[in-house]
């Protein structure tokens, strides 16, 4: 099968609504969205706390976080696998080869990206602004919120990097999800499988959807950043 033939077949599959494809897209969105939400809810406050405080060991902690930004996903997958396996400390949850296991692994992969880039974003804000916000009557929580709005470019980059890290990830999803059809098969793992099986049209279709999703989410978040209400935190 030629490259162009694969593309034509892929377009046909997408247009005719191949049911397995849509199931995989749905699960990908569910797992990616949940993992990104968890990593954002934990990572942004942790990043803000580290960026805005001074304590012994802070430099080491930042170094560890930055190192975590390059964490090999397959190693994270292996660790989560061992924790969730029947004899592991969290084996009782019976999450292995289920979407929750994939969400946990991918949230762990995205967390250092979100926290680390939040730190970098906040450190780019003029340090005097913090004092000036307090002088205007801001409480500690209001100061943090205003600084995050000021550093929104960095926070947005953190979310996009986390999203990119999750949606493109194969190793951990394969290890802890098992790539089970209809249950834990997501776009990235399905592409690997379909390619191995010689189903190039389906693999290309899924690759196109993956790129489309990534583009759509990036466009959405960048569009939000340009909204005046979001800019001013109202």
């Amino acid at each position: 099968m030629t490259f162009w033939q694969s593309l034509i077949d892929a377009a046909r599959l997408l247009l005719t609504g191949y049911p397995e494809l849509w199931r995989v897209i749905g699960l990908t969105m569910q797992v990616t969205g949940s993992a990104l939400a968890i990593s954002a809810v934990v990572g942004i406050p942790v990043g803000a706390a580290i960026a805005l405080s001074r304590f012994p060991g802070r430099h080491l902690l930042v170094t560890v976080l930055y190192t975590g930004m390059g964490l090999p996903p397959v190693v994270v997958g292996l660790a989560v696998y061992l924790f969730l396996s029947r004899r592991g400390p969290l084996g009782g949850l019976d999450w292995l080869f289920t979407p929750p296991a994939m969400i946990v692994a991918q949230a762990i992969i995205a967390f250092p990206l979100v926290a680390g880039l939040t730190i970098a974003g906040l450190e780019g804000v003029d340090p005097d602004l913090r004092l000036q916000l307090r002088s205007l009557g801001a409480s500690q929580a209001q100061v943090v919120r205003a600084l995050l709005v000021e550093a929104r470019g960095g926070v947005l980059a953190a979310l996009l990097a986390g999203f990119g890290g999750i949606i493109s990830e194969v190793g951990a999803a394969m290890l802890v999800g098992g790539n089970i059809a209809g249950q834990t098969r997501v776009l990235s793992t399905a592409i690997v499988l379909e390619t191995r099986q010689g189903e190039f049209a389906l693999a290309v279709a899924m690759g196109g959807v993956l790129l489309g999703l990534a583009f759509g989410v990036n466009a959405l978040l960048l569009g939000l950043e340009r909204r005046p209400n979001w800019r001013t935190g109202r």
């Binding site: 005097d128 000036q132 002088s135 205007l136 801001a138 205003a146 001013t232």
Partner: peptide
């Protein structure tokens, strides 16, 4: 603390419009 405000030697306005900046201390309260 909110009874006292200061204009700093090198003031920094928040990223937004002039109106946003004037409304900011009121929004805080």
């Amino acid at each position: 603390r909110r009874e006292v405000t200061m204009v700093f030697q090198r003031p920094i306005l928040i990223n937004g419009t002039v109106r946003d900046n004037l409304a900011y201390p009121l929004r805080l309260r």
